[in-house]
């Protein structure tokens, strides 16, 4: 299945915590492909897509970080007005909920690749493909 492994890490709201976490990942030679931070007053959840998900999991576990992996969908959203709306409409028509989404940091002309976390992956993939919307393969996502 063309899904991407996302790693979400629990980050307590303390000075230096995010720096500590990203330094840990950097020093292991792991590249962050994209990330998103959701936060409350007490804590944040850093969601990342990395080039080496399995190594990253091992690293986090060894260093006592709390994390969870989830399968997400990378969509090659057309980089023009209405591009993301079309994708969301297609998902909505399939009666699937989007939990959250965030954009990839890539530089491919004409594309605004975006990560979608949905509650029904298979239905979403089918719906998007039927509209001719292209999906990122894991290889593309990890090594853009």
């Amino acid at each position: 299945m063309d899904t991407i492994k996302q790693i979400s890490i629990f980050v307590e709201n303390q000075p230096g915590k995010l720096a500590e976490l990203t330094r840990l990942i950097a020093d292991a030679g792991i590249d962050l492909r994209t990330l998103s931070l959701a936060d409350t007053r007490d804590f944040g959840i850093l969601r990342v897509i990395v080039n080496k998900p399995d190594e990253t999991e091992k690293l986090l576990k060894e260093n006592d970080w709390t994390y969870k992996t989830a399968e997400v969908i990378g969509v090659k959203v057309p980089d023009r007005p209405g591009g993301v709306a079309e994708v969301l409409e297609a998902i909505n028509e399939a009666a699937v909920n989007v939990e959250y989404m965030y954009a990839f940091v890539n530089r491919i002309p004409g594309r605004a690749d975006t990560v979608f976390r949905v509650d029904d992956i298979e239905t979403t993939l089918k719906a998007l493909r039927s509209k001719g919307i292209e999906i990122l393969t894991p290889e593309e996502a990890y090594c853009i």
Partner: peptide
Amino acid sequence: NPDQFSDKMKDV
């Protein structure tokens, strides 16, 4: 514990 964590803010 790690099993109680979720990537969804609302769950936490």
